[in-house]
Design a protein around this nucleic acid. Structure first.
Length: 739
DNA sequence: AGCACGCCGACT
DNA sequence: GTCGGCGTGCTC
C-alpha cells in the first residue's frame, strides 16, 4: 500500500502541514511528488486540489482514517510540477517547511483564488446601517458590531483582511448576507503593465569583437551535453548587457523564454529600457513595490505566453514560463540575491537548480564577482568568460588614497581631507560635477552623551537610534520614533549630541566650505517616497546641482558624463562590521564607486579617504585589480575556514522570552554535540546575534562550520526533528541559514 | 479555508 | 428547557 503526503492549501496558515492519503492501485505507477491531485477534505467531504509532496509505504496515523485520492489533475511535465520540485529542493537545502518553500515558489497559488478577490460591501443605506449599528451595540453581537462599524467607516472591506484583523468568521458574514445587510463583491481587474515610455533614444549597437567572442564562447558551452553555468567577469563599462541581449535573442529564436534577475536597488527604468528597446512588449518587469496581485498578473501573463522575457529581483526567478531557456543574473555579487526570510535561499544556487530541472542555461555577470562564485569558476564548476575592455577604451579614473590618520595629525578634523577639498574646488570652478559617497551601512549619526558615553538606544531593538531631520530619533529596524533629549537620561549632562557621520552632516560641511555650490542628497530619508529616487537622479543629470551626496544607492548603474570626481568619504566604515564578508563588500562598493567616475569624454578621478590605507581591499579597489583581491581574500577564508573554503550553517533562534531562548539554544548545542561526534565540526556559540533584539524579540545564533555541505544538511534535518518533538521549543522560532 | 461542536446568555 | 451566536478545534 502506498500513501501520499499532500498539502491542501498554501494560502492559509492554519493548513500549514501535510495530510496523508491512500494511493489507489490504478494510480500507483503514475503518481509522483510534484503532481496536483484531487482529494476529499474535511467532514463534508468536499473535493479540493492538493500538491503531492512525497510518497511513503507507512501510514502515519490509524489507516482507517486515511481517505483515498480521487484523481490526478496534472502530469509530471508541467511548469507547476517542476516548480514544486524546485520547492522540495529548497526545503531540503535551506531548511524550511514545505509550505514555506511552496509559498516562495508559487506566489501564484495564493492569488489564484483571489483572482476573484472577495470584498464585503454594505448593501443597505448608510442611515439604515448607522441605525442598525446602534441597535447592535445594545446587544451581545460583538462580532457583528465590529464588522458593521468597520463597514460604515470604510464602505468596502477586503474579505481575508476582515477575517484576520476583526476576527470575523464565516458564520458572521453568512448571516449578514442572508439578512441582506451586506453583499459579497468579486472583481477581476487586470492591472495594467508598466508603461514602456519613450525608447526612441536607444539605438542598437553592434557587438565589439570582445563581446562577440564572449557570446561565441558561451554558445560553445551550451552545445555541450551538460552545460555549466557561465560567469562573466566584466569590468564596469565592458557591455555585459549587450552580451545578455544577444543571448536572450538567441533563446527567444528557439521558442524559449528568459528570466533576467537584477538586484532590487538597480532595478530602475534606466536599467530596463535597453531590454524594452530591443524586445518591446515581449518584456515584463516585476519590482518589489508591486502588490501581490500585480505580481500575480505578471506571472499569469508569463504562463499564458504573452511575454517571453521577465525582468525582476530575486523573486522573478520563479516566473512560471512554459519552456524556460535562459536565466541571467546581473550583478551576481549583490547581497540582495540572498533571501532574508525562510527559506533563506540564494538566487544563484536556486537558479542553477531550476535550470537543471528545466534544461535551461544560467549566465551570471559582475565586475566584482562574489568570492563564492569566482572560486567555483576557478575549480571548473562554472565556465568563466572575461570582458576586459571598457567601452570606447576609456581609461579608468586616477585614484588617490588619503590616510585620514595623517589628516588628524595635521590638525584637520573635517570629514573632508585637504586633498579632496582641493580637488572639489577645482571641479566646481570648471563647472564639472562631483559625487560624494558615504559607505555607512547602519552607522548613521547615533546620539551619545559626551560625559558618560551613554548611547540612545531603541527600547524594542538592540540598536542605537539615529538622528534625522528636526531632531527626531528613529530606529531603522522597527520604526520607533522619539524626540531628542535635552539632557542625558542617565547622568543628566546637557552635553548630548549626534556622532557626525550621516549624509546630512556631510551636506552641511560642504555648504559651509562651498557656499555657492548647489547640493543634492540621496539617502534613506530623501528616497522614502515613491519616485523620489528617479527624481533626484534626473535633477542631477540635468545639472540642477553641482554635487550629489549619498549612500550606496548613488553608485549603482547611473552614468553622469560630467561627473569627473568621485569622493569616497569614509571607505572603511563597512570594514568594521564583524561579518566575514565585510572585506568583500568594501572591495565591491569601492570598485563600483571608483568605476562611476569618468564615464564621459573627460577623464575621471577618485579620492578614497580611509583609516586603513594599507588594507588589501582598499589597495586592490584603487587599481581595480580583482585577481589580487580574490587571492588575498581567499587565503584569509581558507585560514579561518569561512565559505567558500568551508560550509557554514547558522541556526537562528528567536523568541519573546530571553531566558527560555538562552536555555533552548544551549540545549540545541548539546544536542548537536551528542549527534555529531567527529571533531571536524566547529560549533560557535550560542551567542546573541549581531542585533540581539528586534521588535522585542530576542535573537540568538549558533554557527556550525564543516568542509562538507551534506553533513550540515544532515545535522539540520536532525535538528528539525528534535525541535518538532521537544516542547521546550514551543515559543521559540528556529531558522536555518546556509552560506 | 470551511465545517461541526460545545459553551453560554436570552427568551418562549 | 430550548434557541442561536460565536469561539475553538479539526480536517488525513
Amino acid at each position: 500500500m502506498i500513501y501520499a503526503d499532500i498539502i491542501i492549501d498554501i494560502s492559509s496558515d492554519k493548513l500549514d502541514r501535510s495530510f496523508q492519503y491512500r494511493v489507489p492501485e490504478r494510480l500507483e505507477k503514475t503518481i509522483k511528488a510534484g503532481m496536483v491531485a484531487a482529494i476529499p477534505f474535511g467532514n463534508a467531504g468536499r473535493v479540493c486540489k492538493g500538491y503531492v509532496i512525497g510518497l511513503s509505504d507507512k501510514p502515519k496515523i490509524a489507516p482507517e482514517k486515511i481517505k483515498e485520492i480521487s484523481e490526478i489533475c496534472s502530469g509530471e511535465e508541467t511548469t507547476e510540477s517542476r516548480l514544486i520540485a524546485l520547492a522540495a529542493w529548497m526545503r531540503e537545502n535551506y531548511g524550511s517547511t514545505m509550505i514555506q518553500a511552496l509559498r516562495t515558489v508559487l506566489p501564484i497559488q495564493e492569488k489564484i483564488k483571489a483572482k476573484e478577490k472577495k470584498y464585503i460591501c454594505l448593501d443597505i443605506s448608510e442611515e439604515a446601517g448607522t441605525q442598525l449599528l446602534k441597535e447592535l451595540e445594545q446587544t451581545r453581537f460583538k462580532a457583528r458590531t465590529r464588522l458593521l462599524r468597520e463597514l460604515l467607516e470604510k464602505k468596502r472591506l477586503d474579505y481575508t483582511h476582515a477575517a484576520k484583523e476583526l476576527g470575523t468568521t464565516s458564520a458572521v458574514v453568512k448571516k449578514f448576507q442572508e439578512q441582506g445587510i451586506i453583499r459579497i463583491e468579486y472583481d477581476e481587474i487586470m492591472r495594467t503593465s508598466l508603461n514602456t515610455g519613450d525608447i526612441s533614444g536607444e539605438r542598437r549597437m553592434p557587438l565589439t569583437d570582445e563581446q562577440e567572442a564572449a557570446v561565441k564562447q558561451i554558445q560553445r558551452e551550451w552545445k555541450k551535453p551538460s552545460p555549466k553555468p557561465v560567469l562573466i567577469e566584466g569590468v564596469t563599462g565592458s557591455g555585459k548587457t549587450q552580451v545578455y541581449i544577444k543571448l536572450i535573442e538567441q533563446t527567444l529564436s528557439q521558442g524559449k523564454e528568459a528570466i533576467v534577475l537584477i538586484p532590487e536597488i538597480a532595478l530602475t527604468y534606466q536599467t530596463v529600457r535597453r531590454f524594452y528597446a530591443r524586445f518591446g512588449d515581449k518584456v515584463s518587469v516585476i519590482n518589489s513595490r508591486q502588490s501581490q496581485g500585480e505580481r500575480y498578473d505578471q506571472f499569469k501573463r508569463a504562463k499564458k505566453g504573452e511575454v517571453q522575457v521577465m525582468i525582476g529581483p530575486r523573486s522573478a526567478l520563479f516566473t512560471p514560463f512554459a519552456s524556460l531557456g535562459l536565466i541571467i543574473i546581473d550583478e551576481e555579487h549583490e547581497p540582495s540575491y540572498k533571501s532574508e526570510s525562510t527559506p533563506r535561499y540564494h538566487a544563484r544556487e536556486t537558479a542553477i537548480r531550476r535550470a537543471v530541472l528545466e534544461h535551461a542555461n544560467v549566465v551570471m555577470g559582475s565586475a566584482t564577482p562574489s568570492v563564492e562564485a569566482y572560486s567555483k569558476a576557478m575549480n571548473g564548476e562554472y565556465s568563466l568568460v572575461r570582458l576586459t575592455t571598457r567601452y570606447g577604451s576609456r581609461p579608468l579614473p586616477r585614484v588617490s588614497i588619503v590616510d585620514l590618520r595623517e589628516e588628524l595629525k595635521a590638525g584637520n578634523r573635517s570629514v573632508l581631507s585637504r586633498e579632496l577639498r582641493q580637488k572639489m574646488k577645482g571641479r566646481f570652478e570648471k563647472k564639472e560635477q562631483v559625487m560624494l559617497f558615504l559607505n555607512r551601512r547602519g552607522y548613521a549619526g547615533f546620539v551619545s552623551c559626551r560625559s558618560c558615553g551613554h548611547v540612545m538606544k531603541c527600547p524594542h531593538c538592540d540598536v542605537s537610534l539615529s538622528e534625522h531631520n528636526n531632531e527626531r530619533l528613529l530606529c531603522h529596524y522597527c520604526g520607533y520614533e522619539t524626540g531628542k533629549p535635552r539632557i542625558c537620561p542617565v547622568c543628566g549632562s546637557p552635553y548630548i549630541g549626534g556622532f557626525k557621520a550621516g549624509t546630512q552632516q556631510i551636506e552641511k560641511v560642504v555648504r559651509e566650505d562651498f557656499p555657492e555650490v548647489r547640493t543634492l542628497r540621496m539617502d534613506f530619508d530623501t528616497t522614502r517616497t515613491k519616485g523620489s529616487y528617479e527624481k533626484i537622479l534626473a535633477a542631477f543629470a540635468a545639472h540642477e546641482a553641482d554635487i550629489l551626496i549619498g549612500t550606496q544607492m548613488i553608485v549603482k548603474g547611473h552614468d553622469f558624463p560630467d561627473v569627473t570626481l568621485m569622493g569616497i568619504v569614509a571607505a572603511d566604515l563597512s570594514l568594521n562590521a564583524e561579518d566575514y564578508r565585510c572585506a568583500e563588500r568594501t572591495f565591491q562598493l569601492l570598485c563600483q564607486a571608483v568605476g562611476r567616475g569618468g564615464r564621459g569624454e573627460k577623464p575621471g578621478e577618485a579620492v578614497i579617504q580611509t583609516y586603513h590605507p594599507d588594507h588589501y581591499s582598499i589597495q586592490a579597489a584603487a587599481v581595480q585589480d580583482y585577481q589580487a583581491f580574490y587571492e588575498e581574500e581567499m587565503s584569509y577564508r581558507m585560514l579561518l575556514d569561512y565559505p567558500p573554503a568551508a560550509h557554514m550553517l547558522a541556526v537562528l533562534g528567536s523568541g519573546p522570552e530571553d531566558e527560555k531562548l538562552v536555555q533552548a539554544m544551549y540545549y540545541l548545542k548539546l544536542y548537536i554535540e551528542r549527534i555529531y561526534r567527529e571533531n571536524d565540526l566547529h560549533i560557535i556559540g550560542p551567542a546573541y546575534a549581531s542585533v540581539g533584539k528586534v521588535k522585542d524579540i530576542y535573537r540568538q545564533v549558533i554557527y556550525l562550520k564543516h568542509k562538507d555541505h551534506k553533513t550540515l544538511v544532515h545535522i539540520k534535518d536532525q535538528l528539525e526533528k528534535y525541535i518538532e518533538i521537544n516542547s521546550g521549543f514551543r515559543k521559540i522560532y528556529i531558522q536555518f541559514d546556509f552560506s
